[in-house]
């Protein structure tokens, strides 16, 4: 589905194909050892250590984070400003909003519909950006990590984690 480049680990059985359960010989229930269920287990002997700080400092990951934040933060600020400008106009500038443009349609109606248009446009813009600029790096990192330590990322209970 994605357009990620060919992964270096293409020969491995697949990201989730690691032998389920083998990482937990200490009798901890799989449920508890799942990272989301217990942050204390992270980095402990409960599962093979993946050095996430190293990943966090890696060039590829920093690039991913930069690309993500440099899109979503300015965009979030922009749409919030535009929305609240509209709310303030609707709230305090009734005369202006009632200015007729054509027929019975006035500025208020047009600005309201413009909010719909901008919402749809930002949505499509983000999707195309994420597909092109974020997904390939994320998939690459994911496959690298999962092939390096398959048992750390498999969860027999849910096919996840």
């Amino acid at each position: 589905m994605g357009s990620h480049p060919i992964e270096p680990d293409g020969g491995s059985p697949g990201p989730d194909g690691g032998t389920p359960g083998t990482g937990r010989t200490d009798g901890v229930p799989a449920h508890q050892a799942a990272p989301a269920a217990g942050a204390h287990t992270a980095g402990t002997a409960a599962r093979p250590a993946v050095d996430f700080t190293e990943v966090q400092e890696a060039e590829q990951f920093r690039e991913l984070r930069k690309r993500h934040r440099s899109f979503v933060f300015p965009m979030a600020v922009a749409f919030l400003l535009w929305y609240f400008a509209y709310v303030l106009l609707a709230d305090y500038a009734h005369e202006f909003m009632a200015t007729p443009v054509f027929g019975n349609v006035n500025i208020g109606i047009l600005l309201g519909l413009a909010q719909f248009v901008s919402t749809f446009a930002i949505t499509m813009w983000y999707v195309s950006y994420a597909n092109r600029r974020l997904d390939p790096i994320a998939a690459n990192l994911r496959h690298e990590l999962e092939s390096a330590a398959p048992e750390a990322f498999s969860d027999p209970t849910g096919g996840k984690k």
Partner: peptide, 24 residues
């Protein structure tokens, strides 16, 4: 713990361990 912070950040952006095999 900075380790867990790193883990959360890496997981949240890459989805490592959270993707079903259908991604492939």
């Amino acid at each position: 713990d900075p380790l867990v912070q790193a883990e959360m950040e890496v997981r949240s952006l890459t989805g490592v361990g959270a993707e079903k095999a259908v991604d492939h």
